[in-house]
Design a protein around this nucleic acid. Structure first.
Lengths: 199, 199, 199, 199
DNA sequence: CATGAATGAGTATTCATTCAT
DNA sequence: TATGAATGAATACTCATTCAT
């Protein structure tokens, strides 16, 4: 018995994660059918077969990536933010700052947003209400903040859910820019906030 | 030879156009690699071989579609609009009304916007300045209107080209909604205009 | 080095034998290409790599199995039996009893017969007279008994070698039944003997 | 519209049949996992893709072959034979003659028998009573003849179904010889009949 | 011209084999 | 020595493209 069970499991977890993370941007950029397993493996720096040690099929890999990008740390933060005892305007400032900073620094964040939003789009097409609670949860808390802002007079009028959708839609838009264009100009906080805030 | 040359040519033109239009939404929805010629042909209601009578390859078909959606009627209108002797605010109102009406009524318009924007995104990635003058022309005239608005005090501050890009980005966003989701809520004129107009 | 060389060698021999025996039925049932090393290892209860410590390749393992099932204890017994000073009928009774008893009790025997016969079949196909002396030796002594029986009037007429082949063919047949079917009815001695004996 | 619908359908039927028949012997000889689609296609003289125009997968092709070799012309003949107003001995003579003649002349017949019997063997293993009514039907009518023979005193004693199984088992045995060996000696009628007939 | 059956290059997936531990 | 994770050559399967009708 060469390696301890624990070491083994750790290694497995690590490789699985490596594949998952290494694939995410690839899928986000090229879509499902535009992504070749052979390219993917080369890009990650592993053999093609290795992918099939960890995932049943290309489809399963993709679906696991979708699950991964759905992870709820963000949701909890949003829930927390929405419940804070500060003005909606401030909340939106904070949210916007966080979002734009991550978008600037972290390509993975852009990939996550892109995959999530695309999932949401395609899933609506299927009318299969599916598992995409992530976005809707995120939207729900964002809408809550917007409603607070509407009461406080800082947010624009209109259906809060739709406005939340608008806000995150614009975030998606600039995620795409981050993913696809090399020389792009990131949106400014003021511009993004204008989707939901007056003035 | 019973039919005249003209009739023949007409028929050819008609079939070509049928393929082009029938493919556009398909490509807009599924992307290049997500679109199978066999599905496409079935969807259009013709044989697979027929496509190859009119187009050299899948790539040529796609590129012809891209050329088609680039057609310059829109550019001329924008040029005309930007040059009109009215306030920028009014111009933006008009533009927005036209855009939203077409988006509501016409799925093809959504497809056009989607394909154009995707082209722009991917092309930047390639750093091949390519043929996408369409968008940039459109953006240029939009930027011109925004600059006018900035002078008049109705438009928000910032780089006009970037704001134009933002405006059309949001239009792209709701084109995607139109294309993918069945039960979607179209953005309102006020929300769209807020990308570039104050208040 | 705590263990003696002998112990070591013994352990090696033991594992080698374990693999050989554990694989035999698997190959007999699923054939060469129907047998996966991974399944085999799982079935034996060892790691895949272990097999390659003892055998160069899947092919070598298979060929070693074929050698093993060819082992000559049986041939010597047959030689001995054929030379005994009793009637051919009695010899065939004895042979049949031994064969049917082993077939009933021992799945490995069925596997051995199956592999041997298949080897014989496929080898003829290759026209490579190969190493399968086993069967032919066995057949030779069986044929000798049959010839004796023909002189004594107890055996049916015809080419003795062909009748031997028939006899063992039927044994192969019921080996397959043993290997593949759970609820099967083993052939009776009288039925088997009728391949070569009158009455 | 180039070809008439009928012509088209005919061509399809013909190619399907060509694949089916061209594959049968290949599968009978090499088994499922020993058969490569690429080899198969080369052997039939068609492109690999063509196979997938007619069959979903290698498995489906194999299962369609199994259905094909199950075809009931034989069953009807057996039913007819078993019901004829002649002695069981004569019936068995006729059956044996027909079977041996076909076995001699027609390799496909050998393939059919081989596939059918293997199916029967493996299916019993699965305990899935499956669709293999063919063999059991055949066995049933054979058993009926044997029972008649037992009453008439020409057939050996014992469970008629088991004897039928024995008879056809021997036919399987010589089918394998036909399929695998080039220089083989076909069993004689008397030898085959001795499985079920006295003397 | 229009078709869809046939094709093979390209892509996904499997599995015998290797190798670090 | 024994292991099982990693590998890539081999294999199954797909799909853009061709071509006979």
């Amino acid at each position: 018995m060469p390696r301890s069970k624990e070491q083994c499991k750790e290694m497995r977890e690590e490789m699985r994660s490596r594949i998952l993370h290494g694939s995410m941007l690839y899928f986000a950029r090229n879509g499902f059918s535009g992504t070749k397993i052979s390219d993917l493996a080369k890009h990650i720096g592993i053999g093609q077969g290795t992918i099939y040690v960890y995932f049943e099929s290309k489809e399963e890999l993709f679906s696991e990536i979708q699950k991964m990008v759905n992870y709820d740390a963000d949701i909890r933060q949003m829930k927390f933010l929405s419940a804070m005892p500060i003005s909606a305007e401030k909340k939106i400032h904070r949210l916007t700052n966080v979002v734009l900073r991550r978008l600037k620094e972290d390509e993975s964040f852009a990939g996550m947003i892109a995959l999530n939003t695309q999932m949401l789009l395609e899933q609506n097409a299927d009318c299969a209400a599916g598992s995409t609670t992530y976005q809707t949860e995120l939207y729900k808390y964002t809408a809550r903040i917007i409603e607070q802002g509407q009461k406080e007079g800082s947010a624009v009028e209109g259906d809060a859910m739709m406005l939340a959708d608008y806000y995150w839609g614009v975030v998606y838009l600039y995620s795409l820019k981050k993913l696809f264009t090399t020389q792009y100009e990131m949106i400014g906080a003021a511009d993004l906030e204008r989707t939901v805030l007056k003035n």
